[in-house]
Write a protein that binds this DNA or RNA. Sequence first.
DNA 1: ATGTGACTTGTAGTCCGTA
DNA 2: ATACGGACTACAAGTCACA
Lengths: 77, 77
Amino acid sequence: MKILAKALGANIRAKRKELGISQDGLALECGVDRSYMGRIERGEVNITVEKLYVISRTLGCEAASLLPALAEIKSED
Amino acid sequence: MKILAKALGANIRAKRKELGISQDGLALECGVDRSYMGRIERGEVNITVEKLYVISRTLGCEAASLLPALAEIKSED
DNA sequence: ATGTGACTTGTAGTCCGTA
DNA sequence: ATACGGACTACAAGTCACA
């Protein structure tokens, strides 16, 4: 899919592994579906800012820290 | 509406005014409807990360810099 | 130039599976 | 535990008219 979603998903996955929790453990704590969290990490969906905050809160980091830099994304998305 | 959307909208509006451009000027450059940009700034809608990047690119700043800190948003959204 | 209402369409997000 | 799919429902995205 889109570069942006993939980069964001990769950041979320990296942070999650850093904490040593499972994908569906994270999904459960975020109150989102297990299968949906998988799609997010794989960059198959373009999440809303609200969901980004729910996830970052659970991951214990700033929402801003999960976002890839603009330079990484270039002109498309 | 939600605190998060309002805080984000306020940040976008502040950055836009800093650049001295109008709401529909920004909307035009972002390729979104004038009325929709108004709703974003007023925090009436919960935008996707993709839209956030389109707007931040037009504003010439990092997407992360438009996001309010987690501490400002507390447990709700 | 901006706010608001009443829409339609696309997709985010949910819930159920199988491997 | 994770990837992936199908079939939904909720809401973001986009358009237009009027104040």
